[in-house]
Design a protein around this nucleic acid. Structure first.
Lengths: 331, 331
DNA sequence: AGCGATTTTGCACCCGGGTGCAAAATGTTT
DNA sequence: AAACATTTTGCACCCGGGTGCAAAATCGCT
């Protein structure tokens, strides 16, 4: 059983009381240089560092932030996790990564985070089901929550998102200009409001250009295989002439799956027979093999904003940031 | 300021002492059904749940495990993180994700984890520098550490890895059988002992087949761009006839970068002009666009084993698991 | 009913630090 | 040297729960 030195022990070694030791470790506390020196010496010898658990218990601040993730199939999560942990750590915070899945739902996760007294909860690209929202245990008293990279459906919970409206207008403008007229839209988990919102804007902008019909294709989850699978179903049941001429996918990973299937299983040329558009600008989508036209989310800025909200440097208020259309060979 | 109900308050509401409340929440504790019922009722009303921080302080068990990651460019981290968090959560543990980077080194991370009294530390595919090992603060008294998906260079710190020797023998056998005779090896961060070990085995098995010369190519980091960049440098300075006929890359993401560059910038056909092999079996490497031959690590089993070690269900001892050669069109 | 055995409950004190206040030590002024 | 101001230090008690033991309540049996 491992044993850490305590302030009391350091105090005995340095000939002062435990309170003086605690002061030595508190920046700006009133203490003589001499006492501090002796204490630091003793602390070094005993390998002492304050027990953060005990500190948190009395200050009610843990410097821990829960990060909820439910979709590990999307490689875009990785850059988000990277910047998020980096920025949090720069602020002296640490991320508790919580995996939402069939065995561990949002309610579990939130209650658990609350029980651990995290300072805040960040929902990274994850969305609630309605029943979750109504759980009465999740009332006030919860740690402050923030949604990153997805719309918040919860009142009082701010979100930092990439503006779907602006993004889809840019995309539709681009597609229309290139002459596409028979658009399709592939959603990942169609029950989610974000998916519906993006589809709504997509349809809306096409309507403004005189195109009323959107072909809907839906994949189970946001994964490469599901994108491939749903593209396969669609292509099997349609003939060359009647197909969409451009397929907009809710994210890059679906788009890559769809593109691959179209090319390798149906011999279609991209973009000549079918154009494909993604969303996220996943690194590999940009390689010559795919050349995927996509929309880049301003990942770093989004993360910066959430972290500012978490640390209280900025008021918690939903923010939509514009992204950037990245045109490549797939359109 | 949010306020959680305490055991004392629940006790007052239920007409018992705080100790009885605590017992009501401790499985197997001695308490009457009647008392438990009243307490649970009061707890529900007050939205009470035990404060895990306070509990940890006295039990010295936090149910938190630090997971150190330093390479977010490798998409393979995502499945590892997914299974790891899932398995840890199934055991009632939670992962603290710590990003090791230029601003936050291993020593920082370990001391921080220790100060938070984590139950264990998992190094996920990350390696120490020598100076880290010698830091005297990192002596005994640290939480138990485990290395996952990379060799451990630290005495007393067990690792769970995919067997590099078996893997590389399978790969070399396969390549030799296909007739390749001029092998090259691309390392990511060549300073790391794991990289050297893989390269060593690669060279060794070729030597047994009578091939003594291995071309070395090194990338800065394990990223798609660095793979592309270093392949570009190599291909620029060599002529068609003198080049390697097969390039083994330390992981899939490097391999994809190299393959893309060879094809799109140098017009080489894979595998005819140059064959490419990766390591990890990253999902997208398997798509028709790349068809990357690779070696699959038994990710789930590896995670299962580390988690068993963390929970003490298995003795902490370095384990090498065999993986599986996945042959596709790139060789 | 009475006595011992057993279960349930309350309590003192612990985990390791943080807080506000008062006592002690040091410094300044006349 | 006395009086006052200021800095430094120690202390009682707090954060919320856990532990072992003893008191209290309940049970079983004659």
């Amino acid at each position: 059983m491992r044993k850490r030195a305590t302030a009391k022990e350091v105090g005995e070694a340095a000939g002062v009381s435990k309170w003086t030791v605690i002061r030595a470790f508190k920046p700006g506390a009133s203490i003589t240089d001499e006492a501090k020196r002796k204490i630091m010496e003793a602390a070094e010898k005993l390998n002492y560092s304050p027990n953060l658990l005990a500190r948190s218990l009395s200050t009610n601040v843990t410097h821990q932030v829960a990060v909820l993730v439910d979709d590990f199939a999307n490689p875009q999560k990785l850059p988000f996790l990277e910047s998020l942990t980096e920025r949090l750590q720069a602020e002296g915070l640490v991320a508790m990564l919580i995996n939402i899945n069939n065995h561990f739902d949002h309610v579990h996760a939130l209650l658990n985070a609350d029980q651990r007294l995290v300072d805040a909860i960040i929902l990274l690209g994850t969305a609630f089901r309605d029943e979750t929202l109504n759980d009465r245990r999740l009332g006030p008293g919860m740690p402050p929550m923030f949604v990153l990279a997805r719309d918040s459906q919860i009142e009082g919970v701010p979100a930092v998102v990439c503006d779907a409206e602006v993004g889809l207008r840019d995309i539709v403008d681009h597609l229309h200009e290139r002459g596409y007229r028979r658009p399709g839209f592939m959603t990942g988990a169609s029950a989610l409001s974000t998916a519906l919102k993006r589809r709504h804007h997509f349809a809306e902008f096409w309507r403004q250009k005189g195109v009323d019909h959107i072909v809907d294709i839906s994949a189970e989850r946001y994964s490469h295989q599901d994108g491939a699978e749903s593209a396969r179903r669609y292509l099997q049941k349609t003939h060359a002439g009647e197909r969409v001429d451009v397929l907009m996918c809710e994210n890059d990973i679906l788009a890559i799956g769809a593109m691959e299937t179209a090319r390798s299983e149906f011999g279609l040329r991209v973009p000549d027979d079918i154009a494909v558009v993604g969303f996220d600008n996943y690194e590999l989508g940009g390689t010559p093999a795919f050349g995927l036209t996509t929309y880049e989310q301003p990942c770093r800025e989004m993360v910066d904003l959430v972290v500012e909200m978490v640390t209280g440097k900025r008021e918690g208020e939903t923010i939509s940031l514009p992204g950037k259309l990245v045109v490549r060979s797939s359109t």
